[in-house]
């Protein structure tokens, strides 16, 4: 199934202050997109808007092949936002991805089990399935949520700073997992702040700073010039960035 994510004229606010302005972007499935921009550029806001967690102020987000169709979108939160003391095993966490399809009382079938096993394989966590999530390393925790997203049968994966705090090995394992998702035709969008590692992780980049700066294949778009424009304090044509108070 061919999917793409089309964002048309998207404006989204955070605490009533617009954080992303009139964004137009089109992304194809089977790619890993690095969402790059300075702090406060609207990266998390954009991810949450695509995930449906924030109301859209202007424009629209299309995730299906045709208008009206919606591909399943999975949101993977920042690791710090998760309560790792929650009494659940890795398998239990991944099984949660099946809940919406199962409904309130639907039985866990052999098919669901197969999907969960597949998810654990993809994230290379099969050997850790019975561990408490607390007992995982940072990279494994990140991959556990990828597995859960796979169990959701998502086509679009939205990751908030997945590589933060990961060491070299954990990062490599995560890249491998993302590669597997990409090979399976999924679209991955991950906010990212370490510019050096961008080319080895992402085949596409989406540069934003309150509005779109550039978007496209990494070798073509991830240039010194575009990076400088992204991180310039005021590329934003709509005026100065607002400070907000709750």
């Amino acid at each position: 199934m061919k999917h793409r994510l089309v964002i048309e004229d998207l404006t989204v606010s955070y605490n009533r202050i617009p954080a992303v302005h009139h964004l137009n972007v089109s992304l194809d499935c089977g790619s890993a997109v690095g969402l790059i921009g300075p702090n406060g550029a609207g990266k998390t806001t954009l991810l949450k808007a695509i995930a449906g967690l924030l109301p859209v102020e202007t424009g629209r987000i299309l995730t299906g092949e045709h208008a009206g169709e919606n591909a399943a979108v999975a949101y993977v939160p920042q690791r710090e936002a998760v309560d790792w003391d929650f009494p659940i095993t890795v398998r239990g966490l991944v099984e949660m991805g099946r809940y919406p399809d199962l409904g309130l009382w639907g039985r866990f079938t052999a098919k669901d089990l197969a999907i969960v096993d597949e998810a654990l394989q993809i994230a290379e966590l099969a050997d850790f399935a019975d561990r408490q999530i607390k007992a995982l390393s940072g990279g494994q925790q990140q991959r556990a949520f990828l597995a859960r997203a796979w169990a959701q049968q998502a086509h679009i994966y939205l990751l908030d700073e997945p590589f933060t705090g990961l060491d070299r090995n954990a990062q490599d394992a995560c890249i491998k997992a993302l590669d597997r998702l990409r090979a399976a035709g999924k679209l991955i969008i991950a906010s990212h702040h370490d510019l050096k590692s961008v080319p080895e992780i992402f085949d596409h980049v989406l540069l934003i700073n309150g509005e779109l700066v550039a978007c496209g294949k990494t070798p073509e778009v991830f240039t010194e010039e575009n990076i400088a424009r992204t991180f310039a304090t005021r590329v934003f044509s709509g005026g100065p960035a607002h400070s907000h108070h709750a």
Binding site: A81, V82, F86, Y99, F145
Partner: peptide, 22 residues
């Protein structure tokens, strides 16, 4: 007991639960 699944989703990670339709 009836709402155990959505409750578990919401308690563990509210934002992910919301994207799953809870």
């Amino acid at each position: 007991t009836l709402l155990q699944r959505p409750l578990l989703l919401a308690l563990f990670e509210p934002s992910v639960a919301q994207t799953q339709g809870v």
